[in-house]
Simulated assay, not measured.
Amino acid sequence: MTAPIRVVIADDQPLIRLGFTLVLEAEPDIRVVGEAADGEETITVCAAERPDVVLMDIRMPRMNGVAATARVVAECPQTRVLVLTTFDLDEYAFGALDAGASGFLLKDIDRAGLVAAIRAVAGGDAVLSPRVTREVLRRRLTSAGNAAGADGVDIAERVAALTQREREVFQAIARGLSNAEIATELYLGETTVKTHVGRVLSKLAARDRIHAVILAHRGGLAVDGEPRSQNGQSPAR
């Protein structure tokens, strides 16, 4: 039997924590293992519980969600962070993504969306809308040092180490596809895709899927969301 996804909820509003807890505890594969009312408490709870996922509010007292995200990512590398924000394209949310968050959710997300996002992140996916992905890329690609190999040479060397199947998976990641979507497109099982994704991230020395997308664009391997073949042309459909 698969172990449940262990979740910590970090939010300074008790009613929001309660609401999320009631929703998540109703799911057979998710268990809320802790709550926190501020960033410092979040770090303490995560250190003790080692959760799979943290739902992280951005605007909290003592330590905000951006600083807390950076600490959690550094000190609990097995824990993934999903940022909670009231505003779409919140500047603080982008700061949390830069700090290592795996995506962000609006607080008015519906039940199905919340549960799906937690499962996706726990499975290794990033949770970002296409619009947010474009904005993250725009911001990071204009910031030197956010991806190694500004001239693309280092990235090309890493990509050369990928097998043909891993390159196909990498191109799909660069287009923002989830594991399930990659599995459908490449006629693979999701478990197989997850294995390939792990190998791709390792060979690329990418911190996460978002970093892999950046490397693909930095290395000229994807244009307007479409993958390129090795000769730089868009593949035939």
Rank of each mutant, 00 (worst) to 15 (best):
A161R: 06
S143D: 10
A148V: 11
T133D: 13
A172F: 10
I9R: 01
I5C: 01
L24M: 07
A150S: 13
R80Q: 04
A160D: 13
P28T: 13
L15R: 09
S202Y: 08
G19F: 06
E185L: 14
D151A: 02
A161Y: 00
R50E: 10
L105M: 01
A47F: 00
Q164A: 15
A120G: 09
V54F: 02
A148C: 03
A222M: 07
V66L: 08
A26H: 04
T79A: 01
A150D: 10
E49R: 13
V169M: 04
G152C: 10
A150E: 13
I5K: 02
G152F: 08
Q78K: 03
A70Q: 09
I155A: 00
D12Y: 02
A205N: 15
T44K: 10
L55R: 06
R50W: 03
V200D: 04
R119D: 03
A10D: 00
E135V: 13
N146S: 05
A126S: 14
A206M: 14
R209M: 14
R119G: 08
E25S: 11
P61V: 07
I30V: 14
G113Q: 01
A156N: 01
A70W: 02
A180P: 07
A99N: 09
Q164S: 11
F104D: 01
G39D: 08
A183M: 10
T42M: 12
